[in-house]
Structures are given as structure tokens and as C-alpha cells.
Amino acid sequence: MSSEETLEEQTVYIKSIVFDLKGEEYALPVEYVGSIERMMHITRVPQTASFVKGVLNLRGVVTPIVDLRDRFGFDAVTETDSTRIIILEVNGLEVGLIVDAAYDVIDIPKEAIEPPPEVIGSVQVDYIHGVAKLDERLLILLDMEKVLNAKGMSDLYQKQS
């Protein structure tokens, strides 16, 4: 018990990968991330949600790819040199996320994380775990399980259509 408390008093850091989406910075706990890949050929899978871009061959494993811009309802952009695919492993599911750019790995102190701000009129989304203010950067922390949640996916899909 006591050792845990002392740990609590010390600063606990969450090692995260920071990526860029529509000019905003998001953070993902590093333990979910399998690898970061450059864009490669994606095979479209018909009759799936629009944000499922398709599947690609990741070293012999057929991996589904989600376009995060589409998932969050942002406008689509053409891919650039900096576009990356972050391969995640969440609850045994292997999924790739298309992001605008992937940067560095940083340590986020736990106390810097605040619950997502509630703004009147904005849509409450459950996949944002919190926000962290670090120096002058504002990082949005994602709850990956919620982002990839199949049920959430289909709900969203219905809303869109």
C-alpha cells in the first residue's frame, strides 16, 4: 500500500505517441502501438463503414485500416509525404489508423491530464479520454478501445447514413 502511495506522489508518466490530425495533436499510450508505417496500397473492402479504408498486407498479416479523419467526421484530405499509418493492437484486434503525421514519443505526467472540457453545444464524444497541457502544447488523449469499438462504429455509421 505505502509503496503505491509513494508512487502516486511521485510523478507518473504516460509514455505516448503524438500524432497530428487536422492541425491538432493527439496522444496514444505507447503500449497499444505496434508500429508506424508509411502509406502503402490499401485494398478497399466493399460494404463497410466509410471510415474503414480497407485492408493492407502488413508483413503477411491482412490488417484492416481505419481513416481517423473520417472516423472523427473531419474532411478528407489527399495523402501527403507525412501521412502515416499507426498499427495498433487493442484487445487482440490489429487495426491501422491513418493520421496526418506521427511525431515523437513523449512522457505525459498524469497530473497534467484533465477530463475533456464540456462545451455547450458541442457533441459529446466518448472516445476522448482527456486533454493534457504540456508547456504550450495541447494534447488530446484518446481512449482507443472506444475509438475502435465495433458498436460505437456501427452507431456512428447509422448516424452518418
Partner: peptide, 11 residues
């Protein structure tokens, strides 16, 4: 296709 994309029609 993996669990994430199970039940795709006609695939």
C-alpha cells in the same frame, strides 16, 4: 479479414 471486419457481405 480479422475480427474487426467480420461479416462483410459476399467476402
Amino acid at each position: 479479414l480479422g475480427d474487426y471486419l467480420s461479416d462483410v457481405f459476399a467476402i
